[in-house]
Design a protein around this nucleic acid. Structure first.
Lengths: 119, 119
DNA sequence: CGCATAGTTTGATAATTGTCAAACCATGCG
DNA sequence: CGCATGGTTTGACAATTATCAAACTATGCG
């Protein structure tokens, strides 16, 4: 079982969650996960146009903050928000942030579509 | 007059607010402001045990993120949360975070005297 | 005016972080 | 087994940041 380490619900720290979601790329990941329940790692990285290892780094940050959970299925890994745990720990927090994210532009739209180079 | 620059309500960015509140010291400042409406700069820095310039830096960060507002009165400056503006921009966000902050330890208790009851 | 007070700004430093690239590891398939 | 695939880890680097200290600015008071 290649279960990567996740914090227990009671060990989730508010500042960690906020810091994890304070990054545009990670916030966008959370928004997409919220819309799609579960998501493959590579699908995210392709859509956001970041390098594989960068994506992995962001997953880890979100995972260690307690925001998402990684499940392995065959050769792939799927991520999913820890909705219930987060809601138990900090009621309403995730939903409020996700709702706020939809009224704010987190990533420049032209930066997202294709995995074009750029920087 | 001596108004330091604050972003307009519509210019408040979610990731900036989250990043501002993701720091333990700043989150604590926000919590204290929420409890006391308005607060003198030095009172905060004394209670949190950080240097004057460090406190000023945190105020600035919060101010530029749109979280608080600085008002000058005589020789002193008073800060206050931008509750209405934040609520207009991101409904429920501030309250939810502040409520979450009360169920989580943001700063080591021995480093800071509690806001109310004895420490 | 001169001095004390309240904060800000600048400087310096150490720590953290976001990013890509390349090497690595685990899983499934032929 | 050997290889391709999907992610992670490590390395390196630039950028940001948290902090203290010291200099600076502005305000009020005598």
């Amino acid at each position: 079982m290649r279960q990567l380490p996740h914090p227990a619900t009671e060990d989730i720290r508010l500042t960690e969650v906020l810091r994890a979601l304070a990054d545009p790329v990670r916030l966008e990941i959370a928004v997409r996960l919220a819309a799609q329940t579960e998501q493959n790692c590579s699908s995210v990285l392709e859509e956001l146009g970041v390098h594989k290892s960068t994506a992995s780094h962001h997953y880890r940050t979100l995972r260690e903050a307690g925001v998402l959970l990684t499940r392995q299925d065959g050769r792939q890994k799927y991520m999913r928000l820890r909705r219930e745990d987060l809601d138990a720990r900090f009621p309403g927090l995730l939903d409020t942030i996700l709702r706020a994210a939809q009224t704010d532009v987190t990533i420049a739209p032209d930066a997202v579509p294709a995995p074009h180079d750029g920087a």
